Simulated scan of single mutants.
Amino acid sequence: MKGSIPHIVQYQGSKRKLAPQILSYFPQRFNRLIEPFAGMAAVSIATAKEHRCPRFFINDLNEPLLGILREAVNNPDKIVSDYTAIWEEQFRYEAGSEAHYYHIRERFNNGEKDPSMMLYILARCVKGAVRYGSNGRFNQSPDKRRNGTNPQTLRRNIAGVSQLLRGKSEFYAMDYREVLDMAAPGDVVYLDPPYQGVCTGRDSRYYSGIAFNEFVEALDKLNSRNVDYIVSYDGFCGDKSYGEILPDDLGLKLSYLNAGLSTQSLFNGERVETKEALYVSRNLAKSGMVLQPSLPLF
């Protein structure tokens, strides 16, 4: 993949760095890419960059997050202009930029769901990590070391994303099972659900967790309808594994992607590699693709 993959803003859990590895499992050409758990749509962006398919169905149950994507693709100048006004305001805010962040976050939590507001919060918060409390309010703190993405940098980022996806994409904020019902043979579905290793029952990124048994049933339905799909789901870090492996009777090919060194391990003075599990549906696995070798869980 020549050149870097454009992205809107830092987002914890983004597959931007892993996208080249993930795309090595995709067909060279297919009808439509469907992302039920899009996040910042890194895989859709990477797929568009390689001209693998002409259409994209981008979904995320987090409507404010989905709104950033929709506006960045369809109205890039407006969202950058609105973001710039909020970003510049922090330097004039009498109580300081940190207090300004909490002021914007409070407005957002009180119902002002403007995409530029969510974009500023995401660009300014710790690790670009979306987190909600049990009351449904965004509760992530600001990163005190920085003031968020510079508007000029953001403009370049968004322009690159918009150029790739504009006129080719549909945006929705629905339950993933509704999205899967819309998939058809000839599509590829890429699923990156909340990992079992980081949530139980309720997930702070999505307001509600993804039940393992329901997820397995949804994949089985895709099999019965002859829809191709690829799933990023858990893995291991050093000798510690996360989550339950998807059942063998789904007929999936399991491989592991090198996600690099664990950030937490580096903080602890260690160098521990993280591997992320990637499951490929049976038709894709039988299509003659060269799959990367699997690694056993410890």
Rank of each mutant, 00 (worst) to 15 (best):
Y190T: 12
D203H: 13
M40C: 04
G201I: 09
L61P: 01
P76N: 06
P151H: 04
R205M: 14
G269H: 06
R52P: 01
V216L: 12
Q264D: 03
I121W: 03
S97L: 01
A72F: 07
G136P: 07
E273M: 02
S169Y: 09
I104D: 02
D143C: 11
I68M: 10
N74I: 07
M118K: 03
R70T: 06
E35I: 08
G201E: 09
A95H: 14
L295Q: 11
Q140G: 00
A72H: 05
L18E: 05
P115A: 05
P20R: 06
N147K: 12
H103A: 10
P20H: 04
A46M: 12
S14M: 01
R105Q: 13
L191C: 14
H51D: 12
F267N: 11
Y132R: 09
N157D: 08
C53V: 05
R29G: 00
P36W: 09
S287K: 06
R92L: 03
E170W: 08
L261W: 01
R92N: 11
D181W: 05
P20L: 05
Y229K: 00
Y206R: 10
Y176I: 07
G251T: 06
L66V: 07
I22M: 09
A38W: 00
D220C: 09
L222Q: 00
G201V: 11
G260Y: 04
E112R: 14
L122A: 05
G96P: 11
T153R: 10
G160C: 06
Y11S: 02
F138W: 15
S162P: 00
L254K: 15
D82S: 13
D181L: 11
V9T: 14
K113F: 06
